[in-house]
């Protein structure tokens, strides 16, 4: 399994052509207490960079951009009832959606863990 990151603070974990997307610990910290998540519905076709989901805190609303192109296979229904999961377990339980990648080569444009950590350090 490979994990990659975007400059907009999404992560994607990939096994074969199946990807799982969420937002990073840095992103959930920046947003504060998450109060609402709207994951995409299964079947939605996303291009890389498309608005895929919405995540909201009390005073901010943010889009989640799809790190790669593909077709959504599942949105994380648990987040509707438990938006706090994003704060508690951003990079594990609080995944936003799963998709089937249509252009796996796009992964090469993303950062690996070390590069992302350095990127975040540069923001502080």
């Amino acid at each position: 399994m490979t994990t990659r990151f975007t400059k907009d603070h999404e992560w994607i974990k990939v096994e074969g052509s199946a990807g799982t997307v969420g937002i990073t610990d840095y992103a959930q910290h920046a947003l504060g207490d998450i109060v609402f998540v709207e994951p995409p519905e299964a079947g939605r076709v996303l291009k890389q960079g498309d608005d895929a989901a919405v995540v909201e805190s009390v005073k901010a609303a943010s889009e989640v951009y799809s790190p790669v192109s593909g077709t959504v296979t599942e949105g994380n229904a648990a987040l509707a009832d438990q938006p706090a999961l994003v704060n508690e377990s951003p990079e594990d339980q609080a995944w936003f959606y799963k998709l089937t990648l249509s252009a796996p080569a796009e992964l090469d444009q993303l950062m690996d863990r070390a590069a992302y950590d350095a990127y975040v350090k540069g923001l502080e």
């Binding site: 609402f36 909201e56 805190s57 009390v58 005073k59 901010a60 609303a61």
Partner: peptide, 12 residues
Amino acid sequence: LSTREQHIRREK
């Protein structure tokens, strides 16, 4: 639920 409103969502 203020994220619906102009002072947060602006043109959206």
